[in-house]
Amino acid sequence: MAEDLDNLIICKKCRTLHRKIDLPAKKVARCAVCGHKLYSDVEGAFAKAVSYSITSLILFIVANLFPIIDVYVKSNHSQLTIPSMISTLFSEEFYVVGSIVLVVVVIAPLSVIFSYLALWFLTYFKLSKSLAKHIISFLMVSRSWAMVDIFAVSILVALVKLFGYAQINYGVSAIALALFVMVDLLFLKSIKPVELWTYFSRVYYER
């Protein structure tokens, strides 16, 4: 029975039941009713997510180390970096806002990256099956709390508010952050849970 259920999939958007088929490389399976993407070629999706997670780790470190924007108001100068933003919130005693910003902008994205790397390590050497299972579950939860893309849009909105009063220069991290968001949306967030689980069962059960 369990074997049979593994061959089925329910569309996330409209909840129609489908039977899974093996896909050739670079092909995508879509829902017959609403057209929502169900899954794609599994091996390719996982390999891409892992390799791009290394890219995004480097980009993320750069985005955190250097200023995103430099603001000049007359003789005053200030910089925006992600750590300085969080420390400002904490030093002004906005602990709730500070903690949630810390989680959604730093901790959750890092958890996603390290989960992919750990998962690759475990599946490559076929180590601890139960740990790999937990990592996939953890990955899915942390992915829904990672909001760097929304943060990047917020920077643009904040710039519009500042344009009238200040001179603004873009820092090194602005580019790193923009690239991080692109990689994140295209490769790390686009992989479906079912693709990870299919890959998982292929590695550990050789199905």
Binding site: L80, M85, E92, V101, S154, I155, A158
Partner: peptide
Amino acid sequence: MIDVFVVSILATVVHFG
């Protein structure tokens, strides 16, 4: 969350004497 982020960003960069 956009508005919260915008306020956090403004509170960080507009912080002069």
